[in-house]
Each structure stands twice: as C-alpha cells, then as structure tokens.
Design a protein around this nucleic acid. Structure first.
Lengths: 203, 203
DNA sequence: ATATTTATTAACCAATTGGTTAAACTAAAT
DNA sequence: ATTTAGTTTAACCAATTGGTTAATAAATAT
C-alpha cells in the first residue's frame, strides 16, 4: 500500500461506484447515479478520481485483484491435481456466491475493451498457467491422469465453474427454475463439478 | 413470415445495427454510428424502427432466433446421448466460430435486463429441457450412463461449449496465446469437449 | 399527366451527461 | 487569531444523444 490517505469519502465513492458499475457496466453507469448512491455531491467523484474512466478503472482493478488469487490457487498450489480441483471448485463457487457480479462484470468489460487485459498481464499476481501445465504432464506420465492438454483442462475447469454465474438468466430460463432452485443447483455444483471433471480425467 | 415488405433499406439498417449492437451493446451503441454504418440518414432508423429500444429488440430477437435451434438440436434430437453430444459439440463450435459475437451479446444483454428473457419463454421454439432430462434418466436406467442429473449435464455441456467464446479475452491472457493459437485451440475443442464429457458420464 | 402515398434528408430540439468552477466550509498549522 | 490547505457544494457549461419535423424526392396509383 502506497497511500495511507484513503479518506473516508474516497472509500465510500469506490464502494458506490462498485455497486453501480457492477450492474450497469461502464457505458450504462452514470456519474450522478454513483454520486446519489454515495450520498455525495457529483463533483466529489472528479475531485478524488478525476474522470469516469479513472473511477471505473479503480473499480475494475479491485474486482480483478479479488478474482486473481482464486485462480492462482489452482494454478500454483502444490497438492495433487485431484485435490486441487476438488478444493478449487468448492472454494470458487462459494467465493462467487458471495460476489455473484464479479465474473460477469470482468468478462463483459474485457470484451468491451480487450486490450485492457494487456495492462494487467504485467502486474505480478497475474494468473499464469505454466506450472499447472507441468503438473498435468507429470501426472499423465505417472499414470494417474489420462492424456489431456493442460490448457484445455484449465479452460474446462474455468468454464464449468464460472459459466453458470455468467449465464444465469439464460440457464434459469432454459432449465425453467426460479432463483431459489438455481441457488440450490449451484450449491450442488460444489461437488458435482469436481466429480464430473475427475471422472473424466482420472486414469 | 408476416411482412412481405422488408424494404431493402430496412434490411440494411438491421444488418448495420447488428454489427454495432454486437460489439458495443445497447448502452454503448449510438444511433448515429448505426446510421453511418448503414450509409444512411439517422432519421431513417426511426422511420423504420421508431426507437433505439425497438431497433435493439429486433437485433436481439434475430440473434436469439439464430441460437435457439442450435440448442434444440441437443435437447430434442432422437439419437443417443453420446451421439448427440458429439454432434452438438462439433456443430455448435463451428456455428459460433461463424458468429463469435452471438453468445457474448445475448448473455451480456440478458444480464443487463434479466426479465427480458421471460418474453422469450412463451414463444414456440424456445429451448425446453424436459425431453432431454427424460432421455438421460432412461439411459442411466439402461446402464449406458453413470447417474447424473439432466440439468447439471445440460449446464456442463453449455458451459464447456459456450464459455471459451464468452471469456476469450480472459482465456487468451491466462493461457498466454494469440488469436491464431486461440483459434486452433477452439478448433481442437470440437472433439476435445465431446471426449471430455463422454469420458465423464459413460458407464 | 396528375394526385397521392412512401422514402429520404437536413436542420433542429430538448434532455442528458461528464466535467468545471468559484465560492463556502472545515480542520490543521503558524 | 489567522493563515493555509484540504474538502464540499451549487451552479454552470459544452458536447452528445435520441428523437422530431418540415420540406423534398421518388415511386405508385388514378
């Protein structure tokens, strides 16, 4: 941490901005709405964050900083692939249930501005897949896993865990269930998804 | 088809609107930009579609109408689960490669306005999961499939097929590959994903 | 040919939006 | 006590945006 300042107002603004950007996106969000949400004069937003763009980036960065360690858990942890997948699935679904807006927000904004992710890649703590790939190759060689490419397995794990949250309105409609049933279904996935993956790749 | 009209201009506008809405979304799109894209006066947009909202809905409906039959393929086709999954995966990935904007657009806009999907549910042709659930239950009983809930399997199939397209900027960054390598990776998934699923559920 | 309906355009408009400014208020430093 | 620096506000501003209008051009019907 470089800034010891972090005035109370600054923090209140960031929290309000988080809530508004989260479900309106950059384009849909209005500075006035953020100000109202923070019970504060609109000029304060510019006083602390200069522009909408900079306020947005502050929100995006904190959101991403929250998500990245979750992914690093599965990429860099030292336990066996099976244990990692079981832990990750349970933890990740539990994590997202507490921040359901997160993946949608990040994915949506990265699609809007794909070169935005490049700035992130340099920062330390940015998820890197290399160690995971080596581990997969090793376990295949040891005979505990069927042959599978690390990249593809990683994508599958991400897809199975994240997709239901990103596409929740679609899923609710197709499967024809209400919010409560959806919540239960997601809860079930904490073990369901891990079993599904392990079943597929275990030798 | 009710309208034999469909003037040429009307069609040009819809195509232009598709392109703009597709990568800017409802909030980010500008009527003037759509007009420019169509090489036409902005007033024409209102002449044919009255409002931005109605033009958007026209675009959304055509997009959804394109996607729905793809999903019905796996839900209502009569072949075995294994065959269906193999066919669907290959066809769907090939389909989306031709319309890479589609799933992101639909998911993004449904998240922006979740009750929008309710209007869709009434229309015939809206994907329904019931038949698929019965088929899964039957094959489990016959001993060709391991026990698995139809809803969860359906979600897994959707997730594995759709997610890479929705989260492509994120995946490219994590797996550290460029557009070309990503394209190859997606191409590989035409068989990869089917194998992954079948491996997991086959008794 | 002429009237009438349909298509198209340029100019305009009111509302919204991100951002600024100058003045006022507050708290800390002298 | 008073200067000083930081904080907050109301009012304002220029640009943008979705949408309208009135006039014109093109096609269709009579």
């Amino acid at each position: 941490m470089s800034k010891t300042k972090d005035s109370k107002t600054e923090h209140i603004i960031l929290e309000a901005a988080k809530r508004v950007f989260q479900n309106k996106g950059m384009d849909g969000a209005r500075m006035q709405e953020i100000a109202d949400e923070a019970n504060i004069n609109k000029a304060m937003l510019h006083y602390y964050y200069r522009s909408k763009q900079q306020l947005f980036e502050a929100v995006f960065n904190t959101a991403f900083a929250l998500l990245a360690p979750q992914l690093n858990a599965i990429l860099n942890d030292d336990s066996s692939v099976e244990v990692k997948i079981r832990n990750f699935t349970k933890n990740y679904i539990s994590f997202i249930s507490r921040h359901p807006y997160l993946p949608t927000f990040i994915i949506q904004e990265l699609n809007r501005n794909p070169n935005f992710v490049l700035k992130m890649k340099d920062k330390k703590g940015f998820p890197n897949i290399e160690k995971f790939k080596k581990q997969i190759a090793l376990e295949i060689q040891q005979g505990t896993l069927k042959p599978v490419k690390g990249e593809q397995l990683f994508i599958n794990i991400m897809a199975l865990n994240i997709f239901p949250f990103v596409a929740s309105p679609l899923i609710k409609a197709f499967v024809n269930i209400d919010d409560k049933a959806f919540k239960q279904l997601v809860e079930d996935r904490k073990t369901e998804v891990a079993d599904f993956i392990i079943n597929s790749i275990k030798a």
